[in-house]
């Protein structure tokens, strides 16, 4: 007996559907990359909170530079490192809107360190999402401020040498010490359970804006198969074995 696909595609059989806020544009991210999952979760959270017409996203420079192509909200594309300042300008002038920034490690923790720390210190009432994969993806795999000791990148081909390059920076722990932040948490998106936890964290971070609590900061420890030169499966394993011990998951601050 043959099964007709039309008999299966029925409303009562629906178990999952793409967020209405995700566009039909094919994402440019590499297969296995964490960005696509996080982009989707953000779209879902905005949809579920019903805040589409009150949300303004600030896109970064790096792999997620074209993120504004994927989520159906108003977007502002910032210069490298400046998303927290751009977000500050938007939020101060439109205090009733929901503002979020989305940055990678080079953007948030190297060139934009001052903007990150001062936005968090002022307690800008917005969500800052921090994708940390320990490498510059878009420019082709150079060393990031969060590259682990000994980890290879194109500008440290023999591994990060802390004598020369300094130690990897735990930005999330730094911003947790600032009174302006209300919610600081670190997650991953490599398993179904991790994705569910991350979505909960993003939901809470966006919802905090309603209560004017200060800056919500969500780090997502991520992979970069292309930059790390591993398969997606190998990357996830490598992340668990190497990234998680230095960047432990969980809430650092929740007030």
């Amino acid at each position: 007996m043959s099964i007709d696909i039309k008999d299966i595609i029925k409303p009562e059989n629906l178990v999952y559907q793409k967020s209405r806020l995700l566009t039909d544009r094919v994402m440019h991210y590499c297969p296995g990359c964490t960005h696509g999952v996080v982009n989707r979760l953000i779209a879902e959270v905005i949809e579920e909170l019903g805040i589409q017409q009150d949300t303004i996203g600030v896109a970064p420079v790096g792999c997620s530079v074209l993120m504004y192509n994927y989520i159906e909200v108003d977007w502002h594309e910032a210069a490298h490192g400046r998303a927290p300042a751009v977000g500050t300008g938007i939020k101060r002038l439109l205090p009733n809107k929901y503002v979020f920034t989305y940055q990678g490690d080079g953007d948030l923790a190297a060139i934009g360190t001052a903007e990150t720390i001062h936005a968090c210190n002022r307690g800008e009432n917005m969500v800052m999402i921090f994708i940390n994969n320990g490498i510059y993806g878009m420019t082709g795999g150079q060393m990031a401020p969060t590259t682990l000791q000994g980890m290879k990148a194109s500008t440290c081909p023999f591994g990060r040498d802390v004598e020369r390059d300094g130690n990897p920076l735990r930005m999330t722990e730094i911003v947790a010490t600032l009174p302006g932040t209300c919610y600081v948490t670190r997650h991953a998106a490599h398993t179904a359970a991790a994705v569910r936890k991350l979505k909960k964290a993003l939901f809470k971070a966006f919802d905090n804006q309603k209560n004017n609590k200060g800056t919500s900061f969500v780090e997502v420890v991520s992979t970069c198969n292309s930059g790390w030169k591993m398969t997606p499966v190998q990357s996830n394993k490598w992340m668990e074995d190497n990234m998680f011990p230095f960047y432990p998951l969980g809430d650092i601050k929740d007030v």
């Binding site: 751009v86 500050t88 001052a114």
Partner: peptide
């Protein structure tokens, strides 16, 4: 709104954000 930023780089990027909202900044 009047805000003292952490640098001129931040100031002009706050202006960039505000200008995007159609505000006089």
């Amino acid at each position: 709104v009047v805000l003292q930023a952490e640098s001129e780089i931040a100031s002009i990027n706050m202006v960039y954000g505000g200008a995007g909202c159609g505000k006089k900044v």
